[in-house]
């Protein structure tokens, strides 16, 4: 209640640039609360992004922030974590940023299990650049580059992360800000690579092309498609088509990349003495 965000934001940059009703601000607040609950100092946290509406977030928060190039946020973040394994590295990425142009970095960060928390804001479209189709635009829905309805099959962020080896994997939506915060906190606690997908509304670029140009209409559309993981377990793949299963899918431990790397360095140093 009445959480004090002031120490964590750059007030002179407000109001933020996002369209009225855009879910990205809701995610930004959940990240701040999760970091606060971890008890971390602001100077020990780095928030890294690529390019896109979602990726504007580092401009507004008072951590160490890095706004990089499209799709490469994880590459920069890997460099930061390598150089300063003592720091806490968080990446925010759009669905295009993380899964299209940045898809390769995504799977390899999962495979390495590097201690970074990636939050993918999936608004099912390229928001910033004018509504081009993304790997998560639902089948049949329109995008500027799919004016007759999307014919491409999707990537499922969660399944992709699980398949590639991430050690914490969860999904929530903009309709569940408290759950979002809990999942981010669990991701931050995980010593390894965490992937948290947040399904969000871009009513401007996705919604308007699909008769859902109002933020509330698109938020309700998302809500109607939410299925808790508990319930999803008893549902068939056909029943789950087009649904957003929410919950925590994976929570496990596996050797972490920077620790393994440090061990190797020690080993090689020992051998050369």
């Amino acid at each position: 209640m009445a959480f004090n965000y002031k120490p964590y934001i750059r007030e002179d940059k407000f109001p933020n640039i996002w369209c009225p009703g855009c879910g990205i601000g809701i995610l930004m607040k959940a990240i701040i609360r999760a970091v606060h609950k971890m008890g971390w100092k602001r100077e020990d946290v780095a928030l890294v992004s690529g390019i896109g509406c979602t990726s504007r977030m580092p401009g507004y928060v008072n951590f160490n922030t890095l706004h990089t190039t499209h799709g490469r946020a994880l590459a920069f973040a890997t460099g930061i974590k390598h150089a300063r394994p003592d720091k806490h590295v968080i990446v925010v990425s759009g669905d295009g940023d993380a899964l299209a142009i940045g898809g390769n970095h995504f799977i390899h960060a999962c495979r390495r299990n590097i201690d970074i928390t990636l939050i993918v804001l999936n608004n099912m479209i390229y928001g910033m650049t004018g509504g081009q189709v993304s790997p998560t635009t639902p089948a049949g829905y329109r995008a500027s580059t799919m004016p007759y309805g999307n014919v491409e099959p999707n990537f499922d962020t969660v399944n992709l992360a699980i398949g590639a080896g991430a050690t914490y994997v969860a999904r929530s939506t903009v309709n569940n800000p408290a759950l979002m915060e809990r999942q981010i906190k669990e991701g931050l606690q995980n010593k390894g690579f965490s992937v948290i997908e947040v399904v969000s509304n871009c009513h401007i670029q996705f919604g308007r092309r699909n008769k859902m140009g109002d933020q509330l209409v698109l938020r309700h559309w998302i809500k109607e498609r939410e299925v808790p993981l508990r319930k999803a377990k008893d549902m068939s793949p056909e029943e789950l088509e087009g649904k957003f299963v929410i919950g925590t899918f994976v929570k496990k431990t596996r050797p972490e990349y920077t620790e393994e790397y440090a061990k190797m360095v020690e080993r090689v140093k020992g051998a050369s003495k």
Partner: peptide, 19 residues
């Protein structure tokens, strides 16, 4: 009822609930 949902859901840091 102090459920905080408005505050949690505001994308613009524009509404706060105090007890």
């Amino acid at each position: 009822i102090g459920c905080d949902l408005c505050e949690l859901s505001c994308p613009d840091f524009a509404i706060e609930v105090y007890e």
